Simulated scan of single mutants.
Amino acid sequence: MRRAFLAGLLAACASAAFAQDKPPLKILVGFPPGGSADVIARLVADALRDDFNPVVVENRPGAGGRIALAAVKAARPDGQTVVVLPSGPMVLFPHVYKKLEYDPVKDFTPVSLIAHFQFGVVSGPATNVKSVAEMLARAKADPKSATYGSPGLGTLPHFMGVLLEQSTGVAMQHVPFQGGGPANTALLGGHIGYKFDVVSETAELHRGGKVRIIAVTGETRDPQVPEVPTLKESGVNMVATAWFAMYAPAGVPADALGRLERAMARAIRHPAMQDKLVKLGYEPVGSTSAELAAAQRADLARWEKPIKATGVTLD
């Protein structure tokens, strides 16, 4: 009995020591529960439990993700507080906001690019347009009728429309809404003609015949809607995608960053995680810190010209 007791005690001590060897990790999300950023963050959290203990996801919604970013900027740079977010706050907001509470390059340490995703050019029942060529022909004939909705000024869908206008020389009319839901309602109700939306958010409506995705914005066709051509296949020289990524505060030590990098690479490249992301409509990546930094620099430069051309600025 005594031997059994001692064996159990030693096993418990070893288990406790093993658990203590895993640092905790807090993942902040700048958007409400249930949204795409939240879903991605919770998938990542589950996949990181072999490397960190505990792993906690905390929602800090508001200001398009800027509240969560401010919290991560102010956190201790120990590799135990990170944020998971879409690319907009890191590559669009610096060109849009007059006063931004953070510097997207200097105030954060890139950890890993999680996944890419692309947008669809969506036509609604008001137009019944079946191709990009038909949409552009109608817009040339009557620019005022070529209305497209977005979740608001300064959002990725807004600037997808701007980039399409600049790529084709065809003017369209942007109609901003207070969120993606109202924009979708307006499209389905025939109050606007078009919308730019994440493919995974619109694929079911497309398959159900309620709207039509007439093109996708990526380099290749989207497996969720393989019958839909890319903009390049439709004769428009435009490729534009977005991504989800993980960032830590600036100044994270190399050993802590290395631990995060390795854990994220294992998590994102695991077949089960890849399968989950693909089913949600995302292209898994699992990059290094340097690769995410390079992707961020490229997109910061890519979006500068089209955004400044609009003259759109926000406070």
Rank of each mutant, 00 (worst) to 15 (best):
L92T: 06
L92S: 10
L92V: 03
L92R: 01
F93M: 09
F93K: 14
F93L: 12
F93E: 15
P94E: 06
P94I: 01
V96Y: 09
V96C: 07
Y97D: 03
Y97W: 10
K99Q: 08
L100C: 08
L100F: 03
E101R: 00
E101N: 14
Y102I: 03
Y102F: 01
D103R: 07
D103Y: 06
D103I: 04
D103G: 05
V105M: 14
D107C: 04
F108A: 07
F108K: 08
F108Y: 13
T109Q: 13
T109N: 08
T109A: 09
P110R: 08
P110K: 12
V111R: 07
S112T: 14
S112P: 07
I114M: 07
A115T: 05
H116F: 09
H116W: 11
H116A: 01
F117D: 06
F117W: 09
F119S: 10
F119W: 10
F119G: 06
F119Y: 13
G120D: 02
G120T: 02
G120A: 00
V121E: 02
V121Y: 10
V121L: 13
V122P: 00
V122E: 08
S123M: 04
S123Q: 11
G124S: 02
G124K: 09
G124R: 00
P125H: 07
A126H: 12
A126S: 15
A126G: 12
T127P: 00
T127E: 14
V129F: 12
V129C: 07
V129S: 13
S131T: 12
S131E: 06
S131K: 10
V132F: 12
V132E: 11
A133I: 08
A133V: 11
E134H: 12
E134A: 15
E134M: 14
E134K: 10
M135L: 15
L136Q: 04
A137Q: 15
R138H: 12
R138S: 12
R138A: 14
A139S: 14
A139K: 12
A139L: 03
